[in-house]
């Protein structure tokens, strides 16, 4: 469980996050949705400690994170898996070495144990026979999946995904979404996903936080979002032709 308490953040006098308070629940896929520029990435960066809130705090299972020393933060980070928007795979390492990296860094497992774990994770994301390829030899969807495998290889308690399916075709996007939500339930992880894709929202949104111009505007789940009376959220949800047509019926 991650608690965000009264978090505000601004860049050069521009208020990007405005007094956000919410709880991301364990074993659930928590979505942060909102238009481009609404502050989703900044909120996630605050959660993983790449940005720091000006006011407020963020706690991981009652352990303060944003307000403590870098050393204590590092301990909590070892329990995190992060999927960056561009994948951020290490391009000098092949797939196997990428997924093995957190194990090399933070465990004392034998090579065989690490290899078993790597193969298990790669299988889990439906990737086989690619372990010797380098990131530059992979397709976008494969890179995302390798990045997920790397994020889960050291069995994290918290998983962060920034737009996991942007730039992917609808079918692959659905596979990735399903994967994230399965992993979350299977290993009882606290998962946070940034997205502006309504398909993901309806598929995996167990808890949805809607950001609007830096404010937490609405919270609910994938059923209540379709019945909302909130004008800005309606605008967001029914912004495509497809969803508008569905609504009419």
């Amino acid at each position: 469980m991650i608690e965000v308490k009264n978090v505000s953040k601004s860049f050069n006098d521009k208020q990007v996050l405005n007094n956000i308070s919410t709880v991301f629940e364990k074993g659930k896929t928590n979505l942060i949705i909102g238009q481009s520029g609404s502050g989703k990435t900044v909120l996630m960066k605050c959660c993983i400690g790449l940005e720091f809130p000006e006011t407020g705090m963020i706690d991981f299972d009652n352990r303060p994170f944003s307000t403590v020393s870098e050393k204590r933060r590092t301990d909590i980070r070892k329990e995190m898996g992060v999927l960056f928007q561009g994948g951020a795979l290490f391009d000098s390492f092949n797939v196997e070495q990428n997924v093995m990296f957190p194990l090399n860094m933070f465990t004392n497992q034998t090579l065989q144990e690490k290899l078993d774990r790597v193969n298990f994770c790669l299988k889990r994301v439906n990737l086989e026979n690619v372990s010797k390829l380098f990131p530059s030899e992979l397709s976008g969807g494969m890179m995302k999946r390798v990045a997920i495998a790397r994020a889960i290889s050291n069995s994290p308690s918290y998983l962060f995904c920034d737009e996991p399916n942007s730039g992917l075709d609808p079918k692959t996007a659905e596979v990735i979404d399903a994967l994230i939500s399965e992993i979350t339930e299977e290993y009882d992880i606290t998962t946070i996903v940034n997205t502006h894709d309504m398909n993901s929202v309806l598929q995996i949104g167990q808890k949805i936080s809607f950001l609007y111009k830096g404010h937490l505007w609405w919270e609910g789940d994938k059923t209540s979002i379709l019945e909302t009376e909130n004008a800005e959220l309606q605008d967001f949800v029914f912004s495509t032709e497809l969803t508008r047509r569905l609504k009419k019926r």
Partner: peptide, 18 residues
């Protein structure tokens, strides 16, 4: 520099690596 702009350095940091 390339690792910086492709967020590989961020990835290291959030893994808990210096």
């Amino acid at each position: 520099g390339t690792m910086r702009v492709t967020q590989q350095i961020d990835a290291l940091r959030v893994m808990g690596v210096n």
